[in-house]
Amino acid sequence: MAKNKNRIRMDRSSRIYTFIIYALVTVTTLVVAYPLYFAIVASFSDPNAVAMGDTVFWFKGFTLEPYQAIIKEPILLSGYRNSLIYMVFGTAYNMMLTIPAAYVLSKKNLPGRKSIMWYFLITMYVGGGLIPTYLWYKQLGLVNNPLVMIVGQGVSAYNMIVARQFFMTSIPDSLYEAAEIDGASEIKSFFRIALPLAKPIIAVITLYYAFAKWNSYYAALVYLRPQKYWPLQLALRQILITNESAFADMSDISNTDADFMLRKMYMVRAMKYAVIMVASVPMLVFYPFVQKYFTKGVMIGSVKE
């Protein structure tokens, strides 16, 4: 009898708990979603109406012009392709370096661990600066070479520390000890025990690196002069700059062209929003695939003891 009462009480408090959770999450999601919605609406609306606050709920002066202007640009397609290549290969390269390093540094009994940590940590705080890095990269043959986007940033100390932390807290030492007793070498341990259990963090760090690679443009700006190597973000940035300064080209052109240039300048504000939509699509599509690796319960059944 007492047990039934307990269960009823648990159900009620559990339901209240659930209700609170759902309520909070809903409110948060709505608050966060609104500016996103605003950005989407703004990318299809007349820029002046947007700035005057007329597009708070719905489009005003609906137009596809910003998107048309962006899509017509030839460097857009090559930008997409380049960014995809840089992202896929670059992320793979980063992960192959970061995860082993994180694993190794998670072993508390490794001699020299502290020094190696510091070796990586320092890179977060000091860098050579633009000129020395450029001169050195030139020596390595990386200037005007698309490889620079893949190979340039090897290990992010930040990501490595986060991954290391995961290895330390989520994989108990007992598992390693058991494997050692069974005669497994450390590398075998890494592949058989650590990696399968590290799926959530691998997913997260992959996401971190992929996002960084997808968004990067400064390295390309400095090292990749030819437009054919440009990543998407740089191409989009260029499109915006060109349209903003269209006025400078307006001497001695025909009326239709002048009207066209004026229209481009006018539309730049809406294009800023459209640009985000264009650039974000792959990452948004990519996310659900990664997301399932850190949902609750993904680890059930994967731990053997």
Binding site: A49, M52, D259, L262
Partner: peptide
């Protein structure tokens, strides 16, 4: 951006750039 929109909304009598850039021609 809001400033440009105010120009287009015909609020100004003095301005320092050719207005048709930000309004209709």
């Amino acid at each position: 951006d809001t400033c440009k929109a105010h120009l287009a909304a015909n609020r100004y009598g003095v301005f320092n750039i050719m207005p048709s850039i930000y309004t209709n021609i």
